[in-house]
Amino acid sequence: MTTLEHATATMHSATRPAFLVRGVNAIAQTYRLWKNRRAFLKLGEMSDIELADIGLSRGDLHFASDLPFSADPTSRLDAIRYSNASHVEQMARRVA
């Protein structure tokens, strides 16, 4: 076996695991996105009071639903919830 043949064979065997890892990561990301979309849809079934308990409003759900399908709405909702919580905390400090 020449050096070139050996290098080519080594390169092909080394790229297979990386290709497999990328494939598994893509499947895992798709599954995570699907699971988060299902959780997002369940939030729509909650009452306004239940949403307020977790720091969200129905308007927040509509805002997050405008994202493209490939984006995760739960990450945007988490950012909105954090922003709402910090805003409420700032307002409470002004009153006190």
Results as ranks from 00 to 15, higher is better:
Thr2His: 12
Thr2Pro: 13
Thr2Tyr: 11
Thr3His: 11
Thr3Phe: 06
Leu4Tyr: 09
His6Ala: 13
Ala7Asn: 13
Ala7Arg: 09
Thr8Val: 10
Thr8Phe: 10
Ala9Trp: 02
His12Gln: 08
Ala14Phe: 10
Ala18Lys: 08
Val21Ser: 15
Arg22Gly: 08
Gly23Ser: 14
Val24Asn: 13
Asn25Thr: 07
Ala28Phe: 03
Gln29Lys: 07
Tyr31Phe: 07
Leu33Thr: 07
Trp34His: 13
Lys35Glu: 14
Lys35His: 06
Asn36Lys: 00
Arg37Phe: 04
Arg37Thr: 04
Arg37Gln: 11
Leu41His: 13
Lys42Asp: 10
Lys42Ala: 10
Lys42Glu: 13
Leu43Phe: 08
Leu43Gln: 07
Gly44Met: 03
Gly44Phe: 00
Gly44Pro: 00
Gly44Ser: 01
Gly44Gln: 03
Met46Tyr: 04
Met46Arg: 09
Asp48Asn: 10
Ile49Trp: 01
Ile49Phe: 02
Ile49Glu: 14
Leu51Gly: 02
Ala52Leu: 00
Asp53Cys: 11
Gly55Ala: 08
Gly55Arg: 03
Leu56Met: 09
Ser57Ala: 13
Ser57Leu: 05
Gly59His: 08
Leu61Ser: 07
Leu61Cys: 10
His62Ala: 15
Phe63Asn: 13
Pro68Val: 00
Pro68Met: 05
Ala71Thr: 12
Asp72Ile: 01
Asp72Ser: 07
Pro73Asn: 08
Pro73Asp: 15
Thr74Tyr: 01
Arg76Tyr: 06
Asp78Met: 04
Asp78Ser: 14
Arg81Thr: 05
Ser83Asn: 12
Ala85Met: 12
Ala85Glu: 14
Ala85Val: 03
His87Ile: 02
His87Pro: 00
His87Val: 02
Val88Lys: 13
Glu89Leu: 05
Gln90Ser: 08
Met91Arg: 06
Ala92Tyr: 04
Ala92Ile: 08
Arg93Tyr: 02
Arg94Gly: 12
Val95Pro: 10
Ala96Met: 04
